[in-house]
Simulated scan of single mutants.
Amino acid sequence: MKTCFTCFVLLIFSAIGNAQGTDTLYLWPGTVPGETMAKHPPVQTPNTSGNVIRLTDVTDPALVVFEPKAPSNGAGIIVCPGGGYNILAIDKEGYEVAEWFSQLGFTAFVLQYRVPDKREPALYDLQRAFRMVRARASDWNVDAKRLGVIGFSAGGSLAARASTRFDERTYAPVDAADSLSARPDFALLIYPAYLDEGENRSLTPELGLSDRTPPQFLFGTADDRYGNSALVMAGALRDQKIPVTLHFLSKGGHGYGMRNGNDAAETWPDLAEKWLRQLVLTNHEPLMP
Score class of each variant (00 low, 15 high):
237 L>E: 00
246 L>P: 02
90 I>L: 06
90 I>Q: 03
242 I>L: 06
107 T>I: 08
279 L>E: 03
135 A>D: 09
209 L>S: 08
31 T>P: 10
78 I>Q: 00
34 G>I: 00
79 V>H: 02
19 A>T: 06
62 A>N: 09
42 P>I: 06
218 L>E: 00
175 D>A: 14
65 V>T: 10
75 A>M: 10
23 D>R: 10
5 F>K: 12
132 M>L: 15
62 A>S: 15
131 R>F: 03
123 L>P: 01
20 Q>M: 11
264 A>D: 04
278 Q>D: 13
124 Y>W: 13
233 M>F: 05
158 L>I: 01
191 Y>M: 02
71 P>K: 15
171 Y>S: 01
125 D>C: 10
151 G>R: 01
122 A>H: 03
221 T>E: 03
51 N>K: 12
257 G>T: 07
129 A>L: 06
36 T>H: 09
123 L>D: 00
221 T>A: 09
7 C>I: 12
67 E>P: 03
10 L>W: 12
189 L>N: 00
275 W>Q: 09
16 I>V: 12
14 S>N: 11
146 R>Y: 11
97 V>T: 12
166 F>D: 01
220 G>V: 00
281 L>D: 12
13 F>A: 12
41 P>I: 11
61 P>I: 03
218 L>N: 02
258 M>P: 04
131 R>E: 01
190 I>W: 00
286 P>L: 13
267 T>D: 08
236 A>L: 05
111 L>E: 01
14 S>Y: 14
46 P>K: 11
280 V>H: 04
52 V>L: 08
208 G>E: 15
169 R>P: 06
283 N>G: 10
174 V>C: 11
216 Q>M: 15
122 A>Q: 04
177 A>H: 07
9 V>A: 14
68 P>K: 04
169 R>E: 15
143 D>P: 05
57 D>P: 03
